[in-house]
């Protein structure tokens, strides 16, 4: 059984179609990327998966349960960390647990138990403004994890970080994902990032947003640091750019 299955999802806003017949799936332990140019409806698709938006047609199934149009089952993380500035890190992370009906004290305790794992030890009682961008993203990720346990939806989570921090957080993410048996659906417009992290890549083009192709990145994990410099990497990149250009996306830079 797939962790997450999206089938034949179509969405239109006021007569103009945004998503057309999208079908994707995510298996246990996989990291799958949705790679698309801006305006290809990536974020709309995420809103459908998280239940905030009910599609005109199609279904979303999480762990065998249909959740189409039902929020509260799966949460996501954006480029903006959206940590509440007036809550300490541990209270931010514990928030989804409180929404699920846990008492404040128990929720705090459960949240704090994962701080070490996420490299956040010592930040429990700090406020978001006291943390660096990378740390804040980790806290946001931990909050997502607290909520939906084994499936994470990430919408360009690292694109606001500087290159060095980004590289660090990539490695860290793959490690932690492995450790806590997380499956990830990852939206990005960054081709390199998609190849580096993914097991599979869906190429999404618009408009309306459609799945153009699915590319399997066979490179075994954990991936070597110099994978990004290898011929195999460049070959994947070439393939993706060619596919994008064929579909009418021009000026993709290498």
């Amino acid at each position: 059984m797939s962790k997450l299955q999206v089938e034949n999802v179509s969405v239109s806003f006021g007569g103009s179609q945004v998503l057309k017949d999208i079908s994707i799936h995510l298996e246990q332990g996989e990291l799958v990327s949705l790679l698309g140019v801006s305006g290809s409806g990536k974020t709309t698709l995420f809103n459908v998966i998280s239940g905030l938006l009910k599609p005109q047609s199609g279904t979303v199934v999480l762990n065998g349960e249909e959740i189409t149009g039902k929020p509260g089952k799966i949460s996501y993380m954006l480029q903006k960390d959206l940590l509440l500035p007036y809550r300490t890190i541990q209270d931010n992370v514990a928030l989804p647990l409180i929404f699920q009906g846990m008492r404040k004290k128990a929720a705090r305790k459960k949240a704090s138990s994962m701080f070490e794992e996420f490299g956040l030890a010592g930040t429990e009682t700090k406020y978001p403004s006291q943390l660096s961008g990378g740390m804040r993203q980790r806290a946001a990720l931990l909050r997502t994890y607290m909520f939906s346990q084994d499936v994470a939806l990430l919408d360009e989570p690292f694109s606001a970080l500087d290159t060095l921090t980004k590289t660090q957080i990539h490695h860290w993410y793959l490690e932690v994902m492995e450790k806590i048996h997380l499956s990830t659906l990852f939206i990005t417009h960054d081709i390199d990032e998609a190849i580096l992290l993914s097991d599979r890549i869906y190429i999404l083009t618009g408009k309306p947003g459609e799945i153009l192709d699915e590319i399997v990145v066979k490179e075994p994990k954990p991936r070597e640091a110099d994978f990004a410099l290898s011929d195999a990497f460049l070959e994947y990149k070439r393939t993706i750019i060619r596919r994008l250009e064929e579909s009418g996306v021009t000026g993709v830079s290498l």
Binding site: G51, P71, S75, P96, F147
Partner: peptide, 14 residues
């Protein structure tokens, strides 16, 4: 209040 935060909380079932 940031509309993105509102959506995030909604997605968490708030």
């Amino acid at each position: 209040a940031d509309p993105d935060s509102v959506n995030l909380l909604r997605s968490m079932g708030a």
